[in-house]
Amino acid sequence: MATDKSNFQLVVNGILNENPIFRLVLSMCPAVGISTTVMNGFLLGIAVLFVQVFSSVTIAIFKDVIHPRIRIPTYTLTIATWVTIIDMVLAAYMPEAYARMGIFVKLIVAFAIITMRLEMFACKESVTASFWDGIGMGLGFMAGMMALGFVRELLGLGTVLGYDVLGFKPLLFFVLPFAGFFCVGMMMAFFNYIEIVYKRAKATQG
């Protein structure tokens, strides 16, 4: 049962149609908790990309020898192994960023998005397709986190990637931790609005 999509379509699918944060509404904890700056989103995005790609490939390679009844524990342990690796790498090479992300790197192990992609995609498809799907999902997560970080950083601190852009702080409210909920909700509503407008335009054309 191979997928009929090309590799490029798989990546785009992960970023747009099935964006993990805004469309699938999975792995929301970091999206609310630490999306205060673009940099945070980027770093956690890299960690998730790494774990997603390597777990997808691992499961795709070994899918024939995994008994269906123990597949969920197998997925979990595979993810846990890759998370341990990225956790130790980040702690060793980027101690500052690691300290800022806190417990969230370790919590990648419980992110629903990774388990779900293994269950829905990697255990049925070929190794190459799983690799590109992993890339797409990882990039989609990273894009979502960075978009959230961009909005919150710009509106809250008036900066982008630490550089002062606006010169003043429009709404300090947005960098406060709980504003993550409002920000995610409003951005989702914004994307829904775009979709509604797009569909209406298409209907009038056709």
Binding site: V25, F178, G185, A189
Partner: peptide
């Protein structure tokens, strides 16, 4: 979902 997020906030 969006309104649920606002309520959670």
């Amino acid at each position: 979902i969006p309104i649920a997020f606002v309520v959670a906030g």
